[in-house]
Amino acid sequence: MRKEILYSIILFFPLLIVQTTIVPLIAINGAVPDLIIILLVTFALRNGQMYGTVLGFVYGFLFDVITGSFFGSTMLSKTLEGFIAGYFYNENRLDHNFKSYIFPFIVLLCASVDAVMYTFLTQIDFRSSLLLLLFEQGMLPGMYTSVLSFVVVIFYKRRSSF
């Protein structure tokens, strides 16, 4: 368990560097995938709901402090996201979760909830179309993140085939 905690913190920083330097280059129509979500869902599915919730909070805190975003907003959204991802934790179905379409689906769900939550927290002006806003800021980046999360599925499948 201690190893797992160490990994989850150590992996966060290089991924945040990639997220803030390289990922903006592959944005499609303003939709930027969130690699931190993939990492959080991975650890939440491996270690359970409590772990996911606390890890989400820690990731959110670090993200807010480091990137200068609205302090507390990412903390809240990532905490919820870790909680939701942890809900799908099942010790007997760990492999199944990672090797099937379930993983990208959970990522999509979490990313959408995260983006919607973040939008609600930081968005004061709802005079523009709310549904469109939720689609553009919630679903689109969520779908993009979900597509990228297939990398984890492929990685797990390959690893187990050796």
């Binding site: 409590m50 805190f61 507390g72 907003s73 809240l76 905490t79 919820l80 909680f83």
Partner: peptide
């Protein structure tokens, strides 16, 4: 799980005001 979630949400919401 719920207690931790509520506590962390309260902390996050408090952080918003800081």
């Amino acid at each position: 799980e719920y207690i931790v979630l509520v506590v962390l949400i309260v902390v996050s919401l408090t952080a918003l005001s800081f």
